Simulated assay, not measured.
Amino acid sequence: MAEKPKLHYPNGRGRMESVRWVLAAVGVEFDEEFLETREQLQKLQNGNHLLFQQVPMVEIDGMKLVQTRCILHYIAEKHHLFGKDLKEKTLIDMYVEGTLDLLELIIMHPFLKPEDQQREVLTMAQKAILRYFPVFEKALREHGQKFLVGDQLSLADVILLQTILALEEKIPSILNSFPHLQEFSVKISNLPTIKRFLEPGSKKKPPPDELYVRTVYNVFMP
C-alpha cells in the first residue's frame, strides 16, 4: 500500500488549506507534520527537502513537492480533476488562477494590522462581487451543469467552493446576488467526500486565530 501523503506546514489554513481540500475531495487520506518553530523549517531547508527553501511542501509518490499551484496540479492530474482534454484543462487552469488571486487576499487578512482588517474585508467583498463572482455566475448559467467545466468535479470547483466558504465566514451575504453560485455551493458541499471534510472532526482547519498568526511569525520570521 502506498504511503499517505505527508503535508509540512504550520497547523492552520494558509496556502496549504487548498491542498487539504483537494486531497479530501478525491478521498485521499493524508498525514501532517506541523511546523511550530524556525528550527523545524531550517531542518527541512538544511536537509535539501525544500527546492526553493519554502513551504508548503508535500511528500507524495516518492517526491517532495513545493509551490502550491504545482502541488494542486499534480493531485488534480493524478485524480482526474483536471479535465478531459487540453481545452478543459486550460479553462480549469484559468478559473483556478483567478480564484487563487482572490483567495490570497483571505490568506493574508489575519496578518494585517487590526485597523486595516475591516477595510480589507470591504476590499475583498468588492473584488469578489464586481470582478470574480460574475465570471463564475455567468459560467454556471451558460454551462447548465452543476460543475464549472465539463460534467464532473474539477480542481476549479474545489478551489471555488473553498474560497466561497472562507468569504462567507467574513461576509455571510456575499452570494446574495448570485443564485447560480448559491446553488453551486450547496451541491458541491454535499458531494460525499467534501461533505465529510466539512463535518466537525475532519482535517479542515478553522479560521485563523491569534495562535496561528504567532506560530507563522515564529516559523517564518528570522
Score class of each variant (00 low, 15 high):
residue 219 V to F: 09
residue 149 V to K: 08
residue 137 E to H: 01
residue 57 M to I: 02
residue 26 V to R: 00
residue 88 E to Y: 08
residue 215 T to A: 05
residue 197 F to C: 08
residue 165 L to N: 10
residue 217 Y to E: 14
residue 158 V to Y: 05
residue 47 G to A: 01
residue 183 E to S: 12
residue 78 K to E: 11
residue 146 K to V: 11
residue 167 L to G: 03
residue 9 Y to G: 05
residue 205 K to P: 04
residue 171 I to L: 08
residue 57 M to Y: 00
residue 122 L to E: 11
residue 64 K to Q: 15
residue 27 G to E: 02
residue 144 G to L: 02
residue 106 I to E: 04
residue 17 E to I: 10
residue 108 M to S: 14
residue 5 P to Q: 10
residue 119 R to C: 08
residue 173 S to P: 04
residue 196 R to C: 09
residue 51 L to Y: 07
residue 94 M to A: 14
residue 85 D to E: 08
residue 160 L to Q: 03
residue 140 L to F: 05
residue 9 Y to R: 03
residue 73 H to P: 02
residue 212 Y to F: 12
residue 26 V to K: 01
residue 25 A to L: 03
residue 155 L to E: 04
residue 161 L to Y: 01
residue 155 L to P: 06
residue 143 H to I: 11
residue 152 Q to E: 15
residue 23 L to K: 11
residue 85 D to F: 12
residue 1 M to I: 02
residue 89 K to C: 12
residue 7 L to S: 03
residue 110 P to E: 09
residue 9 Y to P: 01
residue 89 K to Q: 15
residue 109 H to M: 09
residue 151 D to W: 06
residue 182 Q to I: 11
residue 43 K to G: 00
residue 210 E to T: 08
residue 76 A to C: 09
residue 47 G to P: 02
residue 121 V to N: 01
residue 113 K to I: 07
residue 146 K to T: 11
residue 68 T to W: 00
residue 8 H to S: 04
residue 200 P to V: 07
residue 102 L to C: 05
residue 183 E to F: 07
residue 5 P to C: 09
residue 140 L to A: 06
residue 98 G to P: 01
residue 46 N to S: 14
residue 38 R to Y: 11
residue 161 L to N: 03
residue 135 V to H: 02
residue 71 I to W: 04
residue 150 G to I: 07
residue 155 L to H: 13
residue 195 K to S: 15
residue 190 N to V: 01
residue 138 K to G: 06
residue 181 L to R: 05
residue 61 D to T: 03
residue 58 V to G: 04
residue 169 E to R: 14
residue 70 C to I: 13
residue 21 W to S: 02
residue 113 K to Y: 07
residue 57 M to E: 01
residue 150 G to V: 09
residue 180 H to C: 10
residue 80 H to Q: 14
residue 218 N to P: 09
residue 51 L to G: 02
residue 77 E to H: 05
residue 156 A to K: 10
residue 73 H to C: 11
residue 184 F to V: 08
residue 183 E to M: 05
residue 209 D to R: 14
residue 79 H to G: 01
residue 85 D to A: 04
residue 207 P to T: 07
residue 187 K to N: 13
residue 70 C to M: 13
residue 154 S to E: 14
residue 189 S to N: 06
residue 65 L to W: 08
residue 174 I to S: 05
residue 42 Q to D: 15
residue 141 R to G: 11
residue 111 F to R: 05
residue 80 H to N: 15
residue 44 L to E: 00
residue 80 H to K: 15
residue 206 P to T: 06
residue 209 D to P: 09
residue 118 Q to G: 07
residue 92 I to K: 07
residue 74 Y to I: 06
residue 169 E to Q: 15
residue 199 E to R: 14
residue 164 I to C: 00
residue 178 F to G: 00
residue 145 Q to N: 08
residue 206 P to H: 04
residue 186 V to E: 14
residue 182 Q to F: 12
residue 119 R to S: 12
residue 163 T to D: 08
residue 149 V to Y: 01
residue 90 T to Y: 10
residue 60 I to T: 14
residue 153 L to V: 13
residue 74 Y to D: 09
residue 11 N to I: 04
residue 119 R to T: 12
residue 89 K to Y: 04
residue 205 K to Q: 14
residue 207 P to R: 11
residue 159 I to R: 00
residue 144 G to H: 03
residue 70 C to D: 11
residue 181 L to H: 07
